[in-house]
Design a protein around this nucleic acid. Sequence first.
RNA 1: GGCCCCGUCGUCCAGCGGCCUAGGACGCCGGCCUUUCAAGCCGGUAACGCGGGUUCGAAUCCCGUCGGGGCUACCA
Length: 485
Amino acid sequence: MTPRLRVAPSPTGLLHVGTARAALFNWLYARRHGGVFIVRVDDTDRQRSTADFETRILEALRWLGVDWDEGVEVGGPHGAYRQSGRYDRYREVAAQLLEGETAYRCFCSPEELAQRRKEAQRAGRPPGYDGRCRSLKAREAKRRQQAGENHVVRFAMPRPGVTIFEDMVRGEVRFDHEVIDDFVILRSDGSPTYHLASTVDDVDYRITHVARGEDILPSTPRHIQITRAMSAPEPVYAHLPLLHGQDGRKLSKRHGATDVGEYRLRGILAEALFNYLSLLGWSIGPEATIFSPQEAVESFDLADVSSSPAVFDPVKLEWMNGEYIRNHISAAEFSVRARPYAERHLGVPLSDAEWQQAVPVLPLVQERVKLLSEVGPQLSFLLEAGIEYHERSWRKVMRAQTVEPVLSEALSALGQLGEWRTETIEETLRGLLARLEVSARRGLQPIRVAVTGSSISPPLFESLAALGRERTLQRLEGARARLSR
RNA sequence: GGCCCCGUCGUCCAGCGGCCUAGGACGCCGGCCUUUCAAGCCGGUAACGCGGGUUCGAAUCCCGUCGGGGCUACCA
């Protein structure tokens, strides 16, 4: 049987890295086994779901390199793959369950429920629904329903009973129905809850493997019971370890960036995020850290996924990103990818000619950045008309006695330089420093600050070569003038 | 509180009864290189939560304990 897997984001926010990782693992498994990967949208929370979030989630998934064979936007044999369009189907299933008496109408008001929950808690009983309406006679329920009385539909958990299943990552898991209340499947407004909609979709879409976050492990017996009540085959479940923040709690907004788009904006490469995320709870082998999606596909198995939670470490992600920037994309590719980040940093689009100025130093920048967003700051001395002196840099290097003579000599020597090339510039400046008996370290830094505005920049000679003689001389002049202020 | 899951360096992973004096990666520390910053290279730091068993032998199996996390909605 062809494996069919899915990821089901809720468009109530942007793509969370946890959801992205779940998508990745499902995708890897599907690709590994020649299966079908599906993206459906779980938008039963009508209050918080938006079309904009949905668009951006799908965009982020594609950016990450996760494509899907069936689902929203690409279609397939099962319709639109969006829960909001399937309410009739969920109501139909609810009606069948009602018919088969595996579900019942509950007329308890939210106020009553809250009241009884409080009492139960005080008495040390479980706080879930007490099952009061379960014993209502069918005729009585029918009458009240037809009288227009507000009600929900609840699933009748088999009692007594226990649900046992084999989780692909955790092994055998069992839940006694004692601790699972008769949960709502249809709200009073007729809309389905997550438990119903998700389960019906998994059944209808013939999902064979459900790999999702461990946070829904306690809900799984509910889903299994609904599936059985529908007389449908049960999928295999795999509950993935949660992603945690540095404090050991479930990764959330307060830990910093949690959505994929934010990492993209910072200049994380999709390849790096893909690689990093796949290493959270899984490993491709004892030694390998950097690997391609293709390699991951070749050895991935849900059964190899770890069962303990993983702390999401942005520092390691950035290291890996630097690794990808340096060693896994070409200079040409780097130029293309870095440009939008540089433009955003400058706040204006660049013409091709303007960007062309940066090309000679780009490979040097490529070696030194961990994030694409660092490219702008590294290049601004080249791409902006004027420069601003970084105060701390200035104070640190421009106060020495040797600075004035170095700048003056450089000004005249570079002014007379025949051919403006990296090599000739280097030769000239080194010769000059030798004559003045100033070390490279002490002599080159003032020139760097004078010309780039900062003590941190790409290598100096290449930078001057790219900047051109005219602007170099202007800046040396400007810095010398500023010295005497 | 109840139920469930989890427990190897600070972090991510390897380990699936003897290859373990526990391996790799990030980080951190030190050194080399060096025009700054990076990168690179070399070296170092650091863990099987604890207690019982089982076994000739346990990080690996079992029990307990402690610790952490998740769930406990007409949210998903």
